[in-house]
Design a protein around this nucleic acid. Sequence first.
RNA 1: GGGCCCAUAGCUCAAUUGGUCAGAGCCGCCGGCUCAUAACCGGCUCGUUGCAGGUUCGAGUCCUGCUGGGCCUACCA
Length: 686
Amino acid sequence: MRPFYVTTPIYYVNDRPHIGHAYSTVAADVLARYAKLRGRPTRFLTGTDEHGQKIEERARELGKDAKAFVDEMSPPFDEAFRKLGCAYDDFIRTTEPRHEEKVQALWTLLAEKGDIYLGEYEGWYSVADEAFITEMELKALDEVTRSKVRKVREPSYFFKLSAYTDKLLAFYEANPTFVQPIGRFNEVKAFVREGLRDLSVSRTSFTWGVPVPGDPKHVMYVWLDALTNYVSALGGPAAPGAAPLFDRFWPPSADVVHVVGKDILRFHAIYWPAFLLAAGLEPPTQIFAHGWLTINGEKMSKRLGNFIPPGPLVDELGADVVRYYLMREVGFGQDGDFAHRQVFARYHGELGNGLGNLLARMVTGIVQKSFEGVVPAPAALGYEERELIAIAERAAAQAASHLDVVAPHRALDAIFELVAAANRYIDRTAPWALAKQGELERLGTVAYTVLESLRWLSVMLSPFMPEKTAALRAQLGLSPLTPTEALDAWPKAGDWGGLAAGTQTAPAAPLFPRFDPKDEEAILERLGAAGTKGADAKTGAKQGEQGVEAPKAEKATKKSDEAASAAKQEKSVSESSGTIVFDDFMKVELRVGLIVEAEAVPKSDKLVRCQIDLGEEKPRQILAGIRLHYAPEALVGKRVIVVANLPPRKMMGLESQGMILAASDTEHGLSVLGLEKDIAPGTRVS
RNA sequence: GGGCCCAUAGCUCAAUUGGUCAGAGCCGCCGGCUCAUAACCGGCUCGUUGCAGGUUCGAGUCCUGCUGGGCCUACCA
């Protein structure tokens, strides 16, 4: 069987572990457990990303040595994931020598290939943050911080990413499932088609990183360091024979799936294969980008402080319930919501009523009462039995094919078809009536059929709920599953009958005990989710909406003073109510401006560079994308409305210190806002 | 501005290459049962599959336009 290697992202230790980290890791764990169950040689890796300027500074703020700081920050991830039942084979930290060594080895390979050269990095530097920031981050900054951003230059090594544009496109072409979901793959391809720029891969402005071989003033920058973990954890890059794990678990020998969040897709789908191709190594088989979770309908954000740690959830509900919910609730690859009340809804409806009760009614009920707890031998199979067996076989086949394409939610859906069918089967065959009539042989067949269904379920659900399925098996009188390499334990047609008659069952407490409403509220209270809405027993329907709207409205009033900065991070909270308060409006400084000069910006279709008198000491330079509708010379002398308090922004290398208001429709084209009278330049518009 | 994805019952979502595909689960209502965790089983209500056209013997399923979401990207600030 072909070896399988699955990874999570390595998590940046600036954060504490939260449900988002748990989601990625649980998903990878399910895939790994499934692969092991099928007998595939399997390796599962997670870990932490510990270098970089942010860490260096954070440590300094805390008066700590960077290494001491990351030594504190990394273990909570390991603990959180272990607590969630994640059984990875390795946990790598980018500060480990085994990693740093290999990052340097990869660098050397790239350098020898001639794909690394020394140049000069020019980028944005935020004085307030004392950090280099990307264009994207720049946009997200608040006004105060952004005003203190400047361009800086420093020497930097570059990776010739631009040389890999065509090679990547060819690679994508040859590997049509390289990125999942498909929509994400399209984005990646579109981005690459635009052409790639060389990538800065070193920094001299901080030291907390892996030194560049031969030039220790430089440390390697973020992604080259971080991405390499997938290979370094296997002991690669290495010559054939030198690193057995690398030989066995990296292509072309193995299938490799990197599970990532959609936010870091680009690095994994573009940079990473480019690095590997450059180094003469094989890219991974697949990058699976999963979606984002919201919490009770709200985006996770520092502002809302709603990063929920997985620990307390596990304490209250158990790891398997959290795992089940994460895998069942949202389509893997899509965005989804983690709603505390919905957890209870699924817990009660599917796990308790469906699966747990199925086990209880048979093991602590029928088998105990009529067979003294011993698994009876089945007699002749009737139509009902054959039908249930067929459903079991279908469930197993479908669940497997869903898991094979990384669709765990669908796999669970398929598996629970069997739960429903088994409950139905009990009702139809009415074992209690058989018992009353003393038809023990028929009763034995019915009991056996259900017990064997439960055994199948214990296998199929084991990747999702390892503890609960072990407990289930214990009640059936079976030992826990022990996946064995090269031995496919997944149930399939022909496997029916694996449960031996005569096995002593062990009735025990309910597998998923019901919480009464009081307990449920108490738990929600302890988890800080008492006020949340969500689908629960009453009106499952509308609560999804309310769950979104209600908390937002609340936040909007409470935190309207934060609306300005919030708006930069995400949609303004007030947008949801459709109105803004007057103060919000007044934050926009609109002024009358007199255009004193205007000229087309060279090499630009749209941009016009204007010098605009705003009643200030000297005119401001403002760029406007109106060239297609206004000849520059026709603008001179016009009075326009200008947004005067936007942070400066560069376009085509020129700084724009504001924005000219205009409106457009298809019929008339674009029209700049003007005034009917010659109001003095600089006058505030209100 | 360019590009991608999506829009199916109150909610989540299914519907092989266009041909009983208009479905499932949840919620709600009614009924049955009693082995079981007030669990289980059966039945029922709501949809002109976002809107408008087109191709076809036949279209959620293909084409065009529109509306409404989401996302990626860019010199629209």
